[in-house]
Design a protein around this nucleic acid. Structure first.
Lengths: 254, 254
DNA sequence: ATGTCTTTGTGAACGCGTGCACAAAGATGG
DNA sequence: CCATCTTTGTGCACGCGTTCACAAAGACAT
């Protein structure tokens, strides 16, 4: 996963496990696709395949919501779409603000997945005065000075931070002070927030590093297998010989 | 978290738990910051605070890598930076390709966090012929026809998919067929890949939906607390009265 | 050299998440 | 109305991850 909650606040809620909540949007997407194809019912097996999960897990997940299936038949697609939407809170409108309209912020503003699930971009905010008034994705960018007013006027409770790392904590503090209680953070920083505020982070660099780890491991195992030797004790990949390990630190720029 | 592995292949590797691997980049970032401030050593307590985790967890994580600390003193910052970098495979160069140069793809190409950790953008690929040759982030966009050649010529093993959902699986198949074994997927789709290929996904819409769930829960609890009543048995939020629940499905567009 | 003090490294307990396997439920056909 | 067949819902066991709590290890002062 590319994300992780910070600290773990009141995670477990009304008996619905966090892991289940994280999968509900996946089910919802698969169900929406079925709904568009006018499929009336679906079995746990089929839906699980579409969502890429185990069918037993899917059934257990749904059991936390209630008994919405019919034995011998499956689940009613439309009904389940509604139930999951309601459980996730998508039957209401969620105004969000995006702070930091750089490349990423602009991409987020243009992202269709936001609007299509009840999320409405209420405002775009940037610290650069030159950006003010300039429309991005059809919405004029506003200056950071307006942040507090925008939050309160629109009743915004969800904020998206797409600023450079250096500005993220400060922006976060202002968002929280103004009333935001959920934050989606794209800046590569650990945000500190008071209790009761949820933070989820999306960190592109971390995702790539995790992939690199597994990639390196795969390369190491393959090399070992090719040489017909026992797996190297620590999985070193000395194919690019840089001398023995544990020598000069390879420090990275930023 | 915004990400989740698909299916769970050979997760556990050389005894390093997946959860630990996912945190190593976090530690690395904190350590790099300390290194830049020329801090020679750091205790597990300090570093844990900087990374936003529990100190016991951090020590246990490090114990999987080896005994790199000194009791009574802490960890040598430079040495630890090197050890984690090596464990993550960041001491070598990882050429990556980004497929789908829309708003998001362009943002990724410009993202500094890639280059700064040993990841090199080897090529940008898009299906739109009009994009071909156009430079994005200083790199000329190439057409999808060149995909296979680019992969093999550059020895690319990591691919980033930033295409629309409809094209993602097809692009994924071609990447895998050409030799890519790790994929970072930004398209809102479940990708199917053969064994031995790792997929991590970043789904902005899912992250927001998870936040909305907790946001709704918070709102519900607060309302219940204000009325001095027992918490509603199922946490319904009927403030926007739409009649009794379980009625008309509120289907979403896309 | 010896004692004290700090901090690591880890054994052990606990809780959550996952997956198996099956009984219960309902549909469907005779 | 009964038998059969499909599919759900869940009890149970297992394994991973987290956290506590403490012994061992080393630095440092005397």
């Amino acid at each position: 996963m590319a994300t992780g909650r910070t600290h773990r606040p009141a995670t477990r809620s009304r008996g619905i496990p966090e892991a289940t909540v994280a999968r509900l949007p996946l089910y919802l997407r698969a169900l929406t696709a079925l709904s568009e194809r006018s499929v009336p019912t679906v079995s746990s097996e089929e839906l699980a395949a579409a969502a890429g999960v185990n069918s037993a897990k899917l059934r257990k997940d749904f059991s936390y919501l209630g008994s919405y299936g019919t034995r011998g038949v499956g689940y009613d697609v439309e009904y389940l779409v509604y139930q999951i939407s309601r459980e996730l809170g998508l039957t209401q409108d969620w105004p969000v603000v995006i702070v930091g309209i750089g490349n990423l912020g602009a991409a987020l503003a243009n992202y269709g997945g936001f609007a299509s699930r009840g999320f409405r971009v209420a405002a775009l905010i940037d610290a650069d005065p030159a950006m003010a008034g300039k429309p991005v994705a059809g919405i004029p960018v506003q200056h950071t000075d307006e942040l507090e007013k925008i939050i309160t006027d629109n009743g915004v409770s969800i904020g998206v931070i797409a600023t450079p790392a250096g500005a993220a904590q400060q922006v976060c503090d202002r968002l929280v002070a103004a009333g935001v209680t959920s934050i989606l953070n794209f800046a590569p920083t650990v945000l500190t927030v008071p209790d009761g505020v949820d933070v989820r982070k999306v960190d592109l660099s971390i995702e790539l590093q995790i992939l690199a780890f597994h990639e390196q491991r795969k390369a190491g195992e393959e090399a070992a297998a090719h040489e017909g030797a026992v797996p190297a004790p620590a999985g070193r990949d000395d194919s690019t010989d840089q001398g023995p390990d544990g020598d000069v630190p390879a420090v990275m720029p930023a």
